[in-house]
Amino acid sequence: MSHTAHIPSHRKPRRNASKTALRAGVAGGVLSTIAVAAAAGPAQAEPVTQTIEMPTLTSGLSTAVAASAEATQQVALDLETQAHEDAAATTAAKAAKTAKAEAVRKAEAKKKAEAAAKAKAEAALRASRSEARTTLSATSGSVSVASSSSSATGSAASVISFVKAQVGDAYVSGGTGPNSWDCSGLVQAAFRSVGVDLPRVSQAQSTAGTQVSLSNLQPGDILYWGSAGSAYHVGVYVGGGQFVGAQNPSTGVVLRSLDYDPPSGAVRVL
């Protein structure tokens, strides 16, 4: 006997008899099962076959491809349409810009032409007045003599009284009274007061009576500036080398000497 046998921690534990028997039974059962399976042989085992149906992946593929192609085509058409619209808008904008520039150019040209025509008319008016002054200067002595030897009576006196009563009234283009006048409106109203109907405008009034020389004026004669039939201004000779006329917006109706604005001619109605 070992000299350590009496020490419990060094002793081998005894196996339990029931556990040993159980293990032996289990081992025997396993061996028996293996033996039976071996005896049966491979001929007794049947192969297991199972068919798995895979889903058809291409069933919706053609539809999706067609839809994608159609969408792509539609996008292309939309882009092409937008490009045409953009090009049309650009063309229209350029045309509008060109038309506007042309309109501005024509307006400026028209404005310049009107300014040139106005300047030409004013120059012609100044020349006409200058010529009339020269003519009047040559006959001014005779005018004074004729005026001093004449006195207004009857209808002529009434016409002169009428126009003198309007001195100080305003000048308004197209005015026919009672407190504002233009030149021909005043002359027409004055002669209408004595029952004589004259044309409305200066051009016609300058030929409404008998043409008389500026050296033989009588009170009540109609004076005109410009040419007979195309006069641009009229007034009434009141005697004493003076006339009354609706001159312009800045002066209104005035009594002035013939030297202030010498007339071109005269007509006698009364």
Rank of each mutant, 00 (worst) to 15 (best):
residue 1 M to W: 11
residue 3 H to F: 12
residue 4 T to V: 05
residue 9 S to K: 13
residue 16 N to Q: 11
residue 17 A to L: 12
residue 17 A to G: 11
residue 17 A to Q: 09
residue 19 K to R: 07
residue 19 K to H: 08
residue 19 K to W: 01
residue 21 A to L: 03
residue 21 A to W: 00
residue 22 L to Q: 14
residue 23 R to E: 03
residue 24 A to I: 10
residue 27 A to P: 07
residue 34 I to Y: 11
residue 36 V to H: 07
residue 37 A to P: 00
residue 38 A to P: 06
residue 39 A to I: 05
residue 39 A to E: 06
residue 39 A to C: 05
residue 42 P to C: 05
residue 43 A to Y: 08
residue 45 A to E: 12
residue 45 A to H: 12
residue 47 P to G: 10
residue 51 T to C: 08
residue 52 I to M: 12
residue 56 T to M: 13
residue 61 L to Q: 15
residue 62 S to Q: 13
residue 66 A to C: 07
residue 67 A to L: 07
residue 73 Q to L: 10
residue 74 Q to D: 14
residue 74 Q to N: 15
residue 75 V to Y: 05
residue 76 A to L: 13
residue 77 L to A: 15
residue 77 L to T: 13
residue 78 D to I: 09
residue 78 D to R: 07
residue 78 D to Y: 06
residue 79 L to V: 06
residue 82 Q to S: 14
residue 83 A to P: 00
residue 84 H to P: 04
residue 87 A to L: 09
residue 90 T to C: 09
residue 91 T to L: 10
residue 91 T to M: 09
residue 91 T to D: 07
residue 95 A to R: 09
residue 96 A to Y: 10
residue 97 K to S: 13
residue 102 E to Q: 14
residue 103 A to D: 15
residue 103 A to S: 13
residue 104 V to A: 15
residue 106 K to P: 12
residue 107 A to L: 07
residue 108 E to K: 04
residue 109 A to K: 06
residue 110 K to Y: 03
residue 112 K to P: 02
residue 115 A to C: 03
residue 120 K to P: 03
residue 129 R to E: 10
residue 135 T to Q: 15
residue 135 T to M: 10
residue 137 S to D: 15
residue 139 T to I: 14
residue 141 G to Y: 00
residue 143 V to T: 04
residue 145 V to I: 14
residue 146 A to P: 04
residue 146 A to S: 11
residue 150 S to D: 13
residue 154 G to S: 03
residue 155 S to I: 03
residue 155 S to Q: 06
residue 156 A to D: 00
residue 159 V to W: 00
residue 163 V to W: 08
residue 164 K to T: 10
residue 165 A to C: 10
residue 170 A to M: 00
residue 174 G to N: 14
residue 180 S to R: 08
residue 182 D to L: 00
residue 187 V to T: 09
residue 189 A to H: 09
residue 190 A to C: 03
residue 191 F to M: 02
residue 191 F to S: 07
residue 192 R to Q: 09
residue 193 S to R: 03
residue 194 V to A: 01
residue 194 V to S: 01
residue 196 V to C: 09
residue 199 P to E: 02
residue 199 P to H: 01
residue 202 S to F: 00
residue 206 S to W: 01
residue 208 A to K: 03
residue 209 G to E: 01
residue 213 S to E: 02
residue 214 L to P: 08
residue 214 L to E: 14
residue 216 N to R: 07
residue 218 Q to W: 09
residue 218 Q to I: 01
residue 224 Y to D: 00
residue 225 W to T: 01
residue 226 G to W: 02
residue 226 G to N: 04
residue 227 S to H: 11
residue 227 S to P: 06
residue 229 G to R: 02
residue 230 S to Y: 07
residue 232 Y to E: 02
residue 233 H to C: 06
residue 235 G to K: 00
residue 236 V to W: 11
residue 239 G to K: 10
residue 243 F to P: 05
residue 246 A to M: 02
residue 247 Q to M: 10
residue 248 N to F: 04
residue 249 P to L: 10
residue 252 G to I: 01
residue 253 V to H: 12
residue 253 V to P: 11
residue 254 V to K: 04
residue 255 L to Q: 15
residue 255 L to K: 15
residue 256 R to A: 09
residue 261 D to M: 04
residue 261 D to A: 04
residue 264 S to A: 07
residue 268 R to T: 02
